[in-house]
Nucleic acid binder design. Sequence first.
RNA 1: GCCGGGGUAGCUCAGUUGGUCAGAGCGGCGGUCUCAUAAUCCGCAGGUCUGGGGUUCGAGUCCCCACCCCGGUACCA
Length: 528
Amino acid sequence: MAEQDRFYITTAIDYPNSRPHIGTAFEKIGADVQARFRRMEGASVHFLMGNDENTNKVTLRARELGLEPKAYVDDMARQFQEVWAALEISNDDFIQTSEPRHHEGCKKFIQAVYDAGDIYPGVYAGHYCTGCESFKTEKEVAEAGGKCPNHPNTPLSWVEEENYYFRLSAFRDRLLAYYAANPDFIQPESRRNEIVSLVEGELKDVAISRKGFTWGIPVPFDETQTIYVWFDALLNYATAAGYGGDEERFARLWPADVHVIGKDITRFHCALWPAMLMSAGVALPRKVFGHGFVYRKNEESGEVAKIGKSMGNVVEPMELIEKFSAEAFRYYFISQCPFGGDGEFSFERFADAYNSGLANNLGNLYSRILTMCLKYFEGDLGSTEGIDLTIWRRGLDVSALTGELREQVGAFDYSGAMQRIWLEVVDAANRYIQETEPFKLAKTDLEATRVVLANVADWMRLTAILIKPFLPRTAETFYRAFDFESAQPWDEVSYGTAATPFSGTSLHVTAPIVNGKPVPLFPKVETR
RNA sequence: GCCGGGGUAGCUCAGUUGGUCAGAGCGGCGGUCUCAUAAUCCGCAGGUCUGGGGUUCGAGUCCCCACCCCGGUACCA
């Protein structure tokens, strides 16, 4: 396979301490859109997600529930994947870091770094909480007022322990050179600036192992230690691709084209991770995209806050999926929350966006078009011969538009792309119908009506293709509303050829019809 | 403290190198149509572009000062 045809994309792996909330889902959807888009562009996409299980919190939580750690993480992994499946996330693989393939790869990797001379024994000192059985960061302790945030009644102790350090400081110049040579490595720009100035400052070596744990990955050159979470967590991208187990697969997939992560962990991905790879002699990923966060806006107080268990403002994806739909969920976060920046969620905003964007525009348009086709032509528009299917576009240059949308989507500007599709394409169809008035034409000139409806049918084809990466279900429903597949299979559509009108010889309504009417795609909801 | 990003219509935000840049969407108000999910379409927003000073023929758009908000400031996936 040609190098430019493959595309390996990953998301951050999640702590299975609690079920995923809408913020976690935001990241997966953002990565999923990219994966779906690249597939449409003809790339052989490999899309990885997973859970980060080698943390001490897992053992504590499992103990609370009376479970073995492995049984606990397996059950959580199942729950996470249920949510991802419900959201139509199209990942090809899901790694649990408790899996043997990950353990083996990690051991091989850390040994390689050790052999390269970048690991040395040292002493780690910090605030230790016996409740958590782990060290607390200065920041955590400071924010909790000198206590452990999870165990405020358990006094912290200052503990020093012997463990292993990674010589991160030695990679400063090489990292800066890499950033300079690859200006797009860190996206968006603001994140890049942060990292560059951070690394330009001072890089300290980091402790990469802990003593006295049984859950986790043993350090191969010192079995009394386990590999510390980040070092191990970052490696999932490589081990899932076959590092240390399936070298043929690894050679085929690596390096990753983009790591999609939260802005809070860009440092690990942009400094520590590349340094680790340099040390082990493994190629570096091509890009790291640090997306923004979704904040929760309280309907009553209007206050905006970070989403978290301790805030008591967690919203689970399933709640919205059941109340609306998975497509509605995707629509909201993709169109209303700029991926590179932060977004805001409230039930009110969600419902407003749903009603205006999906029910009143896209969904209603679907209904009115199909109804007219059924009413005036019994669903059979007949031959398309001699009909210009681009009349509806008028001033709209679809080729130019799709070209620009490709740029936007490829650069993760989803909300911008969605806005353009709605403003320039969806609105154009409503206006076209309004101006040509096929519902009046049908009384006097059936042939003219047929031309108009064939045009809006082709609008439906185009729209289906444009929204395919974002709203895969709706897109397919649109495409299958008419027999567009007679000209081009759904699996083969792309932005590159979307501007070319339907090339089939006839058009028929093939959408599901109940009681003589099309099924409403997005039933309107009451807001207050 | 230091570094970085911001403060534009009720809300969410666009506004390239200074001169139709005072805009879009949503909400609201008025009107139209009837194919449609009381949807669509058309018209209406007169906001000191946070405040003050400066550069300029001319500044949300550049400079300075002030106030406010948000990130980062390393062992927080």
